[in-house]
């Protein structure tokens, strides 16, 4: 079954860029991803640029509105995602539980919709 791991994090929490901890965290993400690839479960995965780089498009009364930034202001933002193929939810949860940022962030595990 395919699952998406949505990586949520508070951009103000976690190690700051340039610090040795930041480099450690980066390496941790790299080896986390590599472990998924080695286990043969990794389908895709990307980190996303911060929400400052986001543009949101909506349509209201037939008019298209384009605005800077994310749709809603929340503390935790979507920072990246993985798509995994694992036998069941427990395996996906185990992978989610190994994400390096869980001390200050979270992972939402969502099954990928299949259309018959």
């Amino acid at each position: 079954m395919q699952y998406t791991l949505l990586i949520y994090a508070d951009p103000t929490a976690g190690p700051s860029p340039g610090s040795p901890e930041f480099q450690e965290r980066h390496d941790a993400w790299m080896s986390y991803t590599q472990a998924m690839i080695d286990a043969g479960v990794h389908i895709a995965g990307e980190a996303l640029q911060p929400t400052q780089a986001a543009t949101t498009v909506r349509q209201r009364d037939g008019e298209t509105l384009t605005v800077d930034g994310p749709f809603a202001e929340t503390k935790e933002i979507l920072g990246g995602f993985y798509i995994l193929d694992t036998p069941n939810l427990d395996d996906a949860l185990t992978w989610a539980g190994r994400a390096p940022h869980l001390g200050e962030g979270s992972v939402e595990v969502r099954p990928v919709m299949t259309f018959a």
Binding site: M1, N88, L89, P111
Partner: peptide
């Protein structure tokens, strides 16, 4: 069914 919750006794680590 939707979440893919396995029908099993969990492995030792769980």
């Amino acid at each position: 069914a939707d979440k893919g919750i396995p029908y099993r006794v969990p492995p030792d680590e769980l």
